[in-house]
Every structure is written in C-alpha cells, then in structure tokens.
Design a protein around this nucleic acid. Structure first.
Lengths: 199, 199
DNA sequence: AACCTTTTGGATCGCGCAGTCCATTCTTGG
DNA sequence: CCAAGAATGGACTGCGCGATCCAAAAGGTT
C-alpha cells in the first residue's frame, strides 16, 4: 500500500482504521481482534480494510505495531539519546512511567502479541528484532556514557538487556496479575544500577 | 473430571494428552494448538479428549499450566525455601538456568499465554494470580532472610517483583528476538542485589 | 459368564472469521 | 464537465476448529 498516493480522505480513513485496531488490541488483545470489529468500530466496510491493507490482518497488525512503537519511542525522547547524566536517566524513566500509566497502556498486550505473531510472520519478526536491538543498543550506549566510556562493554549490554526485560516482564505480569504494581515496582528500581552522578 | 476414579489405563491416556499438549504449546504456542493436533499426536479420538477434559480446551490448558508450573517450582527446590544464604540464592539461580535452558524451555510461550488466556478465563486467572503471588512472596521472604530480617519490607518486595519481571521479560524478549541472550543476561545479573555473604 | 462402567472411534454440526469479488459512488485532474 | 482512478458497500465463499453425539469395544467386578 503506497500511502503517498492516497487521497486525503483515504489517508484519514486509513488512520481511523489503524487507531481503532490499536485501541481494540490495547483493550482486548489480539485473540479477539476481528476485522469485523474494526469495521464496525470505524464504520468501514470489508473492502476498505483490504483496500488499505492488502496483506489483510497481517498488514493491519504491522501498522498497529509501527504506530505503537513510534509512540513508545517518542515517550522516551529526548532523554533516550543523551543518557550521559543521572538527570537524563530520570527523565527517561519518567517518560516511560507517563507512557505506560496513561490510557491504560500497562495493560497493553503488545509485547505478548509480538512474541506470538513473530513466530508466524517473518517480516514482522525481522522488523521487531531490529527495533529491540536498536533499543537495547541505545540503552547500552547510555550506560557506557554515564560512566564516561564511549563503547559499551559486556556488562553494559547485559544491564541494558536486563532493563528492557524488566519493563517487558512488568507489562506481562501486570496482565497476569491484573495490577500495575509489578511495573511500578520495576520502574522504582530501574535506575538502581545507574550511578547517582556522573563522577 | 475426578482423576481418582480413572482406570490406570485412563490415567495413562490423560497424561499422554497433557504431555503432548504441553509439548505442542512449548513448540508452537497456543494460537496453533488445536485439539486435532493433540489427537493426532497422541492417537486419541475427539471423544477421549472431552472425556478426560469435560471443559474442553480450557480444561486441557489448565492442566498444561499446572503441569508446567509444578516443574518450574520443582526446578527451584529446595533452595527456594531457604534463601538465607548467598549459596542458596546461587543454587536457586542455577536451578532456573537449567530449567529454562534445557528442552528449549526458553522459547516457552507460557507466560505470554497466561496473560492472554487469563483475560477470558476467570478461574485460570485467579489461579495464576495466586501462583504468582506465592512466588513473589517466597522470594521477598528470601530477600529479607539474607538480610537477617523476618518480614520483608517494601524494598524487599519491590526487589522480588523486579526479579520475577526480569525472568518473564527475558522469556518474552527471547521469543521476540529468537535468542536466549536476553534471558542469559538477566540470569547473569539477577543476584546483583543479593549480598555476597550473610553478614 | 453376565453386567456395568470406563474407554475409545469417528461422523457431524455450527460458528466465527479471514479473505474474495463485483458493483456502486465519490474525487480529482485535465 | 468528464473520464480515470480512488473509495465504499456488502454479499458470498471457504475453512479451521471447538464442541456434541451416538455408538461400539475393552476392562473390571461378582
């Protein structure tokens, strides 16, 4: 689907569909995401869906992921790209807190979904791996930076990976426990390894 | 299904079904778990499945969870119930490592599944919450114990929650990244907050 | 052996849902 | 204003799969 050759009306419809799908997924997960439901929610017909997402559900899902990850990234900016001070790390953490605890995002099953869908959609899998790698490397670079090192070493990379796992685990546990407490606990402690002050 | 009134043959068949289902789930996830596949794998007919699991897929899934969680718990014993020494914590961690890195358990989608299924199955949800609460409390008690305190305080509980999140996050990221590296990184650092020696 | 219970086979139903197709209506650029 | 392309409507198809049901075989008990 070449978005650029769409009418403005078309673009609006497409966006409406993506938003509704994202909302549905956020609220009820993928299992129950049906094209019918998206159609109903957006008052669009079957053919519109396949018009804007020729790959069908797969394509729609990909768009949802892109949409959500763009927002997740935005929530961490601009701190994410200058993690050389404690203050910046705190801004990063606070950005995440805001992101996850507003509009019920802590219940978002995207992580679980990603793991699930990636098993059957090679394209999506590759893209997700790239995303997670970038995120991990960015954090690892930050961990190195606050210790006045250019290149992250193995320890830095383990720490970055661990931090991401904490967050994702917090999301998963939140869905299992139906409580944001795990994620909150994680975010309270996520800077424990970050030096209080750049020496 | 009252297991106790089953013939030995019946118990064997039931066990065969649970094992096959667990294996399927471990290998391909829930999305693709079909009763047909389980039936084929175990050479059992439709009616047998519903004979041993009157709740159908739901019941089968519950049995799979019970089965897997029993094994996860066993893998952490006996350390899990005496976490008052560094040595014991290390044994605990090593038990987890063995558990997850043998028979490809790091690819196990049970966590993601749990989050998914819990949304639509109240019974299962309640049971899972109980399981995770127990686990968290046990770890929190251990965190307190190694610091010579009887009752865990808020910090101990945050730490316990964080440790669990790390592990679960490691599993999720492993599925996304198709690599056990995240889980390995987590397990390398998971004892970072545990004092080297009981003072 | 006779009787009852458990275990097994497998055909069949019904539903939900992704995806296809063709016809119709709107937009837009020349 | 008038084609050409874009956007929309909605019926229809096909299939996977969970669940039901009616029997029939096997096993165990007295």
């Amino acid at each position: 689907m070449d978005v650029s050759r769409l009418t403005s009306k078309g673009r609006a419809t497409r966006a409406r569909i993506v938003n509704a799908a994202a909302e549905q997924v956020r609220a009820h997960g993928l299992e129950t995401l049906s094209l019918d439901a998206v159609g109903t929610a957006t008052s669009t017909s079957r053919s519109q869906l396949f018009h804007y997402f020729p790959q069908g559900k797969r394509g729609l899902l990909r768009a949802v992921f892109e949409h959500e990850i763009a927002e997740l990234t935005a929530a961490q900016e601009p701190a994410l790209h200058d993690l050389s001070s404690r203050r910046s790390w705190e801004a990063w953490r606070d950005g995440l807190s805001v992101y996850y605890f507003t509009q019920g995002r802590w219940t978002c099953p995207l992580t679980a979904l990603a793991a699930q869908v990636a098993a059957t959609d090679e394209d999506l899998s590759a893209w997700l791996i790239a995303q997670s790698t970038t995120w991990r490397q960015t954090l690892a670079t930050g961990v190195a930076a606050i210790q006045h090192r250019q290149q992250p070493n193995d320890q830095d990379e383990d720490l970055a990976a661990t931090m991401i796992c904490q967050i994702q685990g917090g999301l998963i546990m939140g869905r299992i426990d139906r409580s944001p407490e795990s994620l909150r606990a994680v975010l309270r402690r996520i800077l424990d390894w970050i030096p209080a002050q750049a020496a």
